[in-house]
Write a protein that binds this DNA or RNA. Sequence first.
DNA 1: ACACTGACCTGCGAGC
DNA 2: TGCTCGCAGGTCAGTG
Length: 268
Amino acid sequence: MPELPEVETVVRTLEKQIKDQEIIDIIVRYPKMIDGSVYDFKKRLIGQHFRAFHRRGKYIIFEMDDFLLISHLRMEGKYFIQDSREPMSHHVHVVFQFHQNKQLRYHDTRKFGRMEIMEKNADLSMFHNLGMEPFDETFNEHYVYEICKNKRVPLKTLLLNQSFVAGIGNIYADEILFACRLRPGKSCQRISHKDAANIVFYTREVLSQAILAGGTTIRSYTSSLGVTGLFQLDCKVHTKKICQSCHHEIKVKRIGGRSSYYCPNCQK
DNA sequence: ACACTGACCTGCGAGC
DNA sequence: TGCTCGCAGGTCAGTG
């Protein structure tokens, strides 16, 4: 389940692996993966080079010569860089062919990932209704408090809302709320200014620690593992049974349709 | 305008 | 052993 830190790791890794590679052919084995016509997708991308690598929320943005190639990994998407003579898993759905038998292969067991092409001058600030990046200074205590005071949804649901802040998924939402000592089910409108400040601080803290941890996997990167971050590397509550802080039993509750882990003793 | 639900997918584990 | 069922989760369309 790649979230912001994993996507960031993938972007940085791919930059090292395929920068300036030219696409000489594309094989689309599962057309629904492509937003729009596969014919246009191939026609526009063949002959283009991977020039720059960006991330917006959980989206990977490949800057090509004349277009932006946008890729979302959803739950299980992975990129592999392999030789075209290596056997190909049937979970590989899109293949970008480079020179010298080199390929970028998109692997996705559940076929949830999507790719789309946008014009190079497209405004990405609002695309897919994405909210601000967690590391932007506009994501601050004032913003969080003002949004929260008019919302009745649980805090967890708000953190997962990509138009509130982009890049947080189920795992890090649980970890951030644990670090804040706030229950995932707590109503947004009941938080204090101090809670809002904590949400900002710990969102950045948890995400940047995870990016740091994911970054270490770049060094141990092997093509057989795919280009992916090490998620769940340092979870304190998510999927845990016992609280590492107070040894109380961790509770699991469905909030907003997602399983949410929290310590009823540490989180109020 | 806001809030909630189901569909999209496949693999895996529990229960019978 | 082999089957069915439910769950995992990010996003978006559809409904209330």
